[in-house]
């Protein structure tokens, strides 16, 4: 088992925002985490990345508690929001920085990035602009691709389709599906169609509780669509 949420609970004062009895994720799965605003998706990711403290329970990767052992950082990568970008660097400098942290040379990083040239639409690589001056969509592209640098086993992406134009959304879906043999993805999204297309397993969160956790089948997708229908 690669990843496990074990009796995890996160509360702020008397308000519980997330309560998961157990979720186990195996290598090679692509988890689609869906839910309305305030469902607890980002909280779940933040707990997994040890950015916030669990009130109860543990998140384990390869059997180790992420809040105790830092080994998970070697094989886990994430893009949650702009706090994962360094806004005063140009995209190339940022990729080089992240590549360097993964002990990739500049040449390794550049070679890796070439395969995403189409996704970047010629607006990112070599751009003489700081990340803070890029559009929201291009910032998101930079963050997503940087999360793939180093070929991490686990990739966590929070709302990766938001802010992207339709063409880029399609291209991103292709990038994810093409790389399913290399990474275990955890992807949150409000967009049911995108999640249904890329995920192998769908988890629905509602007000901090898991209300559905099934492998993706036509029936699961139908239940998911029905659940969110007004």
């Amino acid at each position: 088992m690669l990843l496990e949420f074990k009796n995890i609970k996160k509360s702020y004062g008397s308000m519980t925002v997330l309560e998961i009895e157990n979720i186990s994720i195996d290598k090679g799965e692509c988890i689609g985490l869906v839910g309305n605003n305030g469902a607890g998706k980002t909280t779940a990711f933040s707990l997994m990345l040890d950015l916030i403290k669990a009130t109860e329970g543990q998140v384990l990767t390869k059997g180790y508690d992420v809040s105790v052992d830092e080994t998970w950082k070697k094989y886990t990568s994430a893009f949650i929001d702009e706090t994962f970008l360094i806004d005063f660097l140009t995209p190339n400098e940022y990729f080089d920085f992240v590549g360097g942290l993964n002990q990739w040379s500049k040449a390794d990083t550049n070679e890796f990035l070439q395969q995403f040239e189409e996704f970047f639409s010629g607006e990112i690589l070599g751009a003489r602009k700081y990340i803070r001056d890029l559009s929201k969509g291009n910032q998101k592209k930079v963050g997503i691709i940087a999360a793939l640098i180093g070929n991490p086993e686990i990739v966590v992406l929070d709302e990766p389709f938001a802010s992207l134009d339709p063409t880029s959304q399609i291209r991103l879906k292709k990038i994810i599906t093409d790389r399913l043999d290399q990474h275990t993805f955890l992807i949150s999204s409000h967009d049911l169609t995108h999640v249904a297309e890329v995920s192998s397993r769908i988890i629905i969160l509602e007000k901090g509780l898991v209300v559905l956790d099934n492998q993706k089948t036509e029936e699961t997708v139908a239940r998911m669509t029905e659940y969110f229908a007004v």
Binding site: L49, L51, E70, K73, S77, A78, T83, F84, L85, I86
Partner: peptide, 14 residues
């Protein structure tokens, strides 16, 4: 502080 989450998760150790 603006990119601390990146450093916390990317740097192998604090």
């Amino acid at each position: 502080s603006g990119h601390f989450d990146l450093l916390q998760t990317k740097m192998t150790s604090i």
